[in-house]
Write a protein that binds this DNA or RNA. Structure first.
Length: 491
RNA sequence: GGGCCGUUAGCUCAACUGGUAGAGCAGUGGACUCUUAAUCCAUUGGUUGUAAGUUCAAGUCUUACACGGCCCA
């Protein structure tokens, strides 16, 4: 926009006038109370009580509504705790101050000193003795009734969304409580929170395309991490037997309602445990989380009710595939030719290098995953697609791995860790062959990680939880962008 | 990557089969000492996402592009 709009110009004129009168964005005003506290403490107080023993307060916040009359006015100010109404009379303030108040704009940030009272309709309010403009707002706020509803602007100008949309504030406050809960839950179990590199020379721990960056001083290519896994397991080798990390992973893929290029993962590693331990841990964690942040084990998600107090469903990949593909038999699930034919019938594009495990997972994702609506643990993932997981003793085609689904979406992934350094080296080599064959999501060979395993990692299980998706579920949001303060958008 | 939908005043939305773009809020001026989506009177505000095209005439039809939303891969 070449010419600034008239509403902004009007406010700039007001600011220029204010500056000539000495306004300088003052910062000495201090509050004695927040709106929410005042409501909590005094909402039950009668007006007689408030007048008998006057409560003087200093409140401050953004002015969101204004109801002007000739000699008295009401306005609402909002602080981090909520809103409170202020009442301004010409008689109390003096004529000049009252006129100055009338010239304020919605969105201005003010400080008010006065006493509490209750209006005739019973609303707790502050009768203002002195009003101070603290910050002049130059940009007009969205319409007061509908708020800001344009999705793009809500994401691009999240600060405006937060000012005017209570629901947005609720979701992000809830997100913070979810993350706090995850930390406290693990801290209680004697897990140690750690931080590991986000810039890695060898990106590992997941099958995904990495972002590439460059370190100028060292003239080296670095990758943004796709997962913290290999570093966290090095710490288990080091004797940190219970560790976790909560932070960002970066994956160079498309954007959707379920994907953002940077997203938050909680990964935890627990020595002297196996994947079953972590299935139980996750089930308990989710149940406790719901009770802690929502006050109930019944979670409503997009019109669907999920009762987390019941034992979660458990099913193997192969069972799920057989359930949704009546034409396939158990024997065929290990038969490359049969699986290849099934993929062709389902319209799944496959590559020549795909083995039975990879083909099986393709069929699972196409036919079964979306149907996992109720909370479900899926177990028995093929070794071919699980290069860091321990093989199942009785059936080395599979690994001791699980994923957790709600509403057809993967929320978590865990397994008994592969701690045999020679097996791990072979799996890395298989990945390198796939990468050479054109699979740019395949893993690199991480020699130092093998060395770490050669020092000996105790039997260990690990779990990763997609925090954004978990928050989507808990906060009943359909899009990942609604649980990310600043989601990725094209610029 | 593919399909469908959307983009109009600062914001929320109208504008029928193509016929010179309207309302509410916000703003401006005025009235009003208990309002709370305050009310009442008056009033300013638009290169209809961008660029082409069809037409006497385009917000409306066509094409391309940009950005967004939903669905699919």
């Amino acid at each position: 926009m070449s010419e600034e709009n008239k509403l902004v110009a009007e406010r700039r004129r007001k600011l220029a006038t204010l500056r000539t009168e000495g306004f300088d964005f003052p910062n000495q005003f201090r509050r004695s109370a927040l709106a929410g506290q005042l409501h909590a403490v005094y909402d039950d107080c009668s007006n007689e009580t408030l007048e008998a023993e006057p409560v003087e307060v200093q409140v401050g916040g953004r002015m969101l509504t204004k109801r002007l009359m000739g000699k008295a006015s009401f306005a609402t100010i909002q602080d981090r705790s909520g809103q409170i109404q202020i009442f301004l009379q010409k008689e109390t303030l003096g004529e000049a101050a009252y006129i100055a108040f009338k010239a304020l704009d919605l969105g201005d940030i003010v400080g008010a000193r006065g006493t509490l009272f209750r209006t005739r309709t019973g609303e707790l309010s502050v009768k203002v003795q002195e009003l101070t403009l603290l910050t002049k707002s130059l940009q007009p706020l969205p319409e007061k009734f509908h708020g800001l509803s344009d999705q793009e602007m809500r994401y691009r100008q999240r600060y405006v969304d937060l000012i005017v949309n209570e629901e947005t504030r609720r979701v992000f406050a809830l997100r913070t409580r979810v993350v706090q809960f995850l930390r406290s839950y693990l801290d209680t179990l004697d897990f140690l929170e750690v931080e590991t590199p986000m810039m890695q020379a060898i990106p590992g721990g997941a099958l995904a395309r990495p972002f590439v960056t460059h370190h100028n001083a060292m003239d080296r290519q670095l990758y943004l991490r796709i997962a913290p896994e290999l570093y966290l397991k090095r710490l288990v080798v080091g004797g940190f037997e219970r560790v976790y990390e909560v932070n960002r992973n970066f994956r160079n893929e498309g954007v959707s309602t379920q994907h953002n290029p940077e997203f938050t993962m909680l990964e935890l590693y627990m020595a002297y445990a196996d994947y079953r331990t972590l299935i139980d841990l996750l089930e308990n964690l989710l149940r406790s989380l719901a009770v802690h942040v929502l006050g109930t084990t019944t979670v409503q998600y997009q019109g669907q009710s999920h009762d987390l107090s019941k034992a979660f469903r458990r099913l193997s990949v192969e069972e799920a595939v057989l359930l949704h593909n009546p034409g396939l038999s158990a024997q065929q699930l290990r038969d490359v030719d049969a699986l290849r034919a099934a993929c062709a019938a389902l319209g799944i594009a496959v590559k020549p290098g795909f083995g039975a495990g990879k083909l099986l997972i393709e069929i699972f994702e196409k036919t079964a995953e979306h149907a996992l609506v109720e909370p479900t643990f899926i177990t028995g993932y093929p070794a071919e697609v699980s290069p860091l997981a321990r093989k199942t003793d009785a059936d080395p085609f599979l690994t001791d791995r699980f994923e957790f689904f709600i509403n057809g979406r993967e929320l978590a992934n865990g397994f008994s860790e592969l701690n045999d350094p020679e097996d791990q080296a072979e799996r890395f080599q298989a990945q390198v062959r796939q990468k050479a064959g054109g699979d740019d999501e395949a893993m690199f060979y991480d020699a130092d990680y093998i060395t770490a395993l050669e020092y000996g990692m105790p039997p260990t299980a690990g779990l990763g939880i997609g925090v954004d998706r978990l928050v989507m579920f808990i906060a009943d949001q359909a899009s990942i962008r609604d649980v990310l303060l600043f989601p990725h958008l094209r610029s």
